[in-house]
Design a binder for these strands. Structure first.
Length: 567
RNA sequence: GCGCCUGUAGCUCAGUUGGAAAGAGCAACUGCCUUCUAAGCAGUGGGCCGGGGGUUCGAAUCCCUCCAGGCGCGCCA
């Protein structure tokens, strides 16, 4: 759509140049029709036209003439555009050129999107480039909490949007299944198990106190009985590993179930443990060594990340011989690059931002273009209930799980709420508001738009109206109301919104877009009847409804939110 | 102390490749259900875009500085 508009401006520039009114040379190529980037925008105010451009103001200094003079010259030519799509063209303010398009031009846009059907909104700016989106990646030491939920919503929705924009996407979950915290989990389960068997034991000081640990211990007990408690201490120690392995399996199952119920499926589950077993971690350190980025000191092995703008060097191998989390993580990122992704996206909790510099150091050390790495930080969620904060604290075992929230307010509302803000902004999530089935709840506002249209369609069916597969232009010409053109204009912007969301990696743009669309449709519905005695108008309006419902369904789909037929 | 994020209406937030008179939702107030779902609609009030400088024809948007809040600065993950 912008392409068509840009063509109009370009033709005007060409004509003006030909007539000698513009002397500035224009470089070849699509982007540079001027030495400066021309902005074509959809003005906020409708008296400024369907689109406007600042071309004249940018040309003024180059031409050495007043902007308004140049604007006049261009406006004359735009108004006379051979496509006949321009109804009028005005110069305003300091030299803006405001262009008004014929209604029929918008009707054609509507026809186009109806013909594209469910494919409307898909574009190919991704050009099949491969993007890996790694998100959630929570340690399997406890259930997913609400913060993970926001990351899941953002990551999954982003993946959908990228796919729609023509990227090839791999969704991946990195399982931190080695290390101290996993060990603690194993010990915690073991302690609970021993307790369940009626024996005395000391619960680990920093153990996980949540109820879920007891549940896992009960599971273990059911499968293995109490035999484990009688074993000699050496065996019992070794069995801590067994508890850990058992707990890992249960927790992962539970996490997968939570995510599946949240509508999130991963393509790849990557185990940190497996990364070690494949030898990749060792290889990566060796490789870094060869490149001269590694040194030994204080009994540890260090990666000189300060050479790449990190605050301090980072330990890869601890003095006790254990690898750090960082060691496996750089191996993982190196592996991602090797797998041939064009773009690597990490969705992290905002509390990990201090980690970014050292991961980027890896890219630089290996000579990869670090611009391929994008890290999205998710600010923490403040959970409220009727305005009052709900306490969260993982260690105490009092955290609010994604499961609880989902069960209470529903999957759709939960996902929608997580996507109402840009990721790096704090989010207040009020359970009471999310649950309320009232207009102040934006989820229902948008979903209702879809359901309402489905209801209209059903009503039309009862009245014996059968809508043709594809619209005739003569029928669409019946959409004469300003409200109708406004809705079409907004629908026509959908592709660009999807593209922008993909490029900027900002799913919340879709949420806002849909709320605006619903905000146009509901008033329209309220003032006008769709199904009337006038067959052509009924057809035209049903087509418009079909397009609104289609875009709403598609947009909600990108968010991972359902589009109900009835509410 | 250093780094990252945030600061826009009473509340929660959009709006940053610089554009024309600042946007939405909620809350507040006033109205609307014999007509395709009132989970809806119509209307009213509400702002030194954290402060101060600067760049520009033009700044919520870019630069500097200060203030406030969050987070991070482990041989944890």
């Amino acid at each position: 759509m912008t392409r068509a508009i840009r063509d109009i401006i370009r033709r005007a520039l060409d004509a003006a140049a030909k007539d000698g009114e513009i002397k500035t040379e224009r470089p070849a190529g699509k982007a540079g029709w001027l030495a400066v980037p021309i902005i074509v925008e959809r003005p906020k105010k409708e008296e400024f036209g369907d689109f406007s451009t600042n071309a004249a103001m940018l040309l003024a200094p180059l031409e050495g003439r007043p902007a308004r003079e140049i604007a006049d010259a261009l406006a004359r030519r735009i108004a006379a555009d051979p496509s006949k799509n321009v109804s009028r063209c005005e110069v305003a303010g300091p030299g803006f050129i405001n262009v008004f398009l014929e209604k029929s031009w918008w009707h054609e846009r509507l026809k186009e999107m109806l013909e594209k059907g469910t494919g409307y909104g898909d574009t190919d700016i991704g050009a099949g480039k491969r993007v890996q989106v790694e998100f959630v990646s929570a340690n399997p030491t406890g259930p997913l909490h609400i913060g993970h939920g926001r990351g899941a919503a953002v990551g999954d929705s982003l993946a959908n949007i990228l796919k729609a924009a023509g990227f090839e996407v791999t969704k991946e979950y990195y399982i931190n299944d080695v290390g101290r915290q996993m060990q603690t989990l194993g010990e915690s389960v073991r302690a609970r198990y021993i307790e369940l068997c009626g024996l005395e034991t000391r619960f680990p000081e920093d153990g996980y106190k949540g109820e879920y640990v007891k549940e896992i211990a009960r599971d273990y007990l059911e499968r293995h009985g109490c035999g484990m408690t009688n074993q000699p201490s050496s065996t019992a120690n070794r069995s801590a590993g067994e508890f850990q392995e058992f707990a890992r399996g249960i927790m992962l199952e539970r996490i997968k179930k939570d995510l599946a119920d949240f509508g999130v499926e991963f393509d790849v589950w990557k185990s940190e443990k497996a990364l070690y077993e494949s030898g990749l971690v060792g290889d990566t350190i060796e490789e870094l060594k060869k490149r001269g980025h590694v040194y030994e000191g204080e009994g540890a092995v260090w990666f000189r990340t300060t050479a790449f703008k990190d605050d301090k060097d980072r330990v890869l191998v601890k003095a006790d011989g254990q690898m750090t989390y960082f060691a496996s993580d750089i191996a993982y990122h190196r592996e991602k690059v090797k797998r041939g992704f064009d773009r690597i996206v990490n969705v992290w909790g905002a509390d990990h931002h201090g980690y970014e510099a050292r991961v980027r150091a890896l890219f630089k050390a290996f000579g990869h273009d670090e611009r391929m790495l994008k890290i999205i930080f998710i600010q923490l969620v403040a959970l409220l209930r009727g305005g009052a904060p709900v306490a969260m604290g993982k260690r105490e075992g009092e955290f609010v799980t994604l499961r609880e929230v989902m069960d209470e307010v529903g999957k759709d509302a939960t996902r929608f709420f997580f996507l109402m803000r840009k990721s790096d902004a704090h989010l207040d999530f009020d359970l009471e508001l999310a649950k309320r089935q009232a207009p102040e709840n934006p989820v229902y506002y948008v979903q209702y738009c879809h359901a309402r249209i489905m209801s209209i369609t059903a009503f039309a069916g009862e009245k014996g109206v059968s809508l043709p597969q594809s619209p005739d232009m003569e029928v669409l010409e019946k959409l004469e109301l300003k409200e109708e053109t406004d809705i079409i204009k907004h629908l026509a912007a959908f592709e660009e919104v999807v593209e922008k969301s993909a490029v900027e990696m900002e799913p919340h743009r879709i949420t806002f877009y849909l709320t605006e669309l619903a905000g146009l449709f509901h008033p329209y519905y309220n003032r006008n009847r769709v199904v009337t005695d006038d067959t052509e108008t009924t057809f035209a309006r049903l087509f418009l409804c079909r397009a609104v419902a289609g875009v709403t369904r598609k947009g909600l789909g990108l968010l991972g939110v359902g589009a109900p037929v009835t509410m």
